[in-house]
Amino acid sequence: MPRPLIAVAVTLVVAAAAVGGVLLDRRDGVDARTADLVAAEEARTVEDAAAVTATAQDVVDVLSPMAESLAGPSPAAADVATWTADVAALQDRLAAEPGGSTAANAARSALRSTVALTGSSLEAHALAADAPEDALAVRLGAHAADLGDQALRSWVTAATLVDVANVDAGLGHVHLTLAPGVGVDH
């Protein structure tokens, strides 16, 4: 083989090796960046699950004292006034919470719905207590109890979604209960 052809062949082999090395190095960089992004997403999912679990525990702390009264006859007016203020403060806190992973957002949305239904039930209980003793008071009381029952059923969904967020994050199951025997425990 003539010298110029050998030189060209050697040059092509060296160039191919260099290009191949650059491409392999680039691929290794992409793989490393992908691994970094996956690790960051997994860490965020764990943080989101922990945060929504803490929020759910706050909901338990606020709603548990009233859970047995929500779906029944109207509780005492003083209790309703105290609970209404507690629920309003909890609603404000929930409204200010940032978004996160899909699982945590779904759980947080269900918690907001539970708290909103609880607030509506308390408002209806207050209206029933203020109504004259007639058919309207009875209907308002029944409506308040129905809203309370809906809040308790909504809680089951919220608690399940908090559990799902924790399982998805690799944290295991979380079982949250408002009050034993009230609604359906999760």
Score class of each variant (00 low, 15 high):
A96S: 14
L23I: 07
S69T: 15
Q57M: 04
H175T: 15
D134S: 08
L161Q: 06
E47Q: 14
R33H: 12
V62S: 03
L161C: 00
A76D: 06
D79S: 01
V115P: 06
A35R: 13
A103T: 14
V22G: 14
A51Q: 01
D149K: 10
V182T: 13
A116V: 05
E42C: 07
A35W: 03
L111R: 11
A106M: 04
V8E: 07
L178S: 13
G141N: 08
L24S: 09
P75C: 08
M1S: 14
T53K: 03
D36V: 09
A116E: 12
A51H: 02
A56I: 10
R108T: 06
A142G: 12
A128N: 02
L24N: 08
V80M: 13
V8P: 02
G29E: 13
A95N: 13
T55S: 07
T160E: 11
W155A: 08
V10P: 04
L136T: 15
L117W: 01
L12Y: 06
A67G: 03
A165G: 12
G148Y: 12
S121Y: 10
E97R: 10
V138C: 02
E123G: 07
G29Y: 00
S120P: 04
L171N: 09
V52P: 00
A96F: 00
P4D: 02
V30E: 14
G20L: 12
A169H: 05
P98I: 01
A35K: 07
V14I: 15
A15Q: 07
A9F: 07
D36S: 13
A104V: 14
H186E: 10
I6S: 05
V10Q: 07
L161E: 05
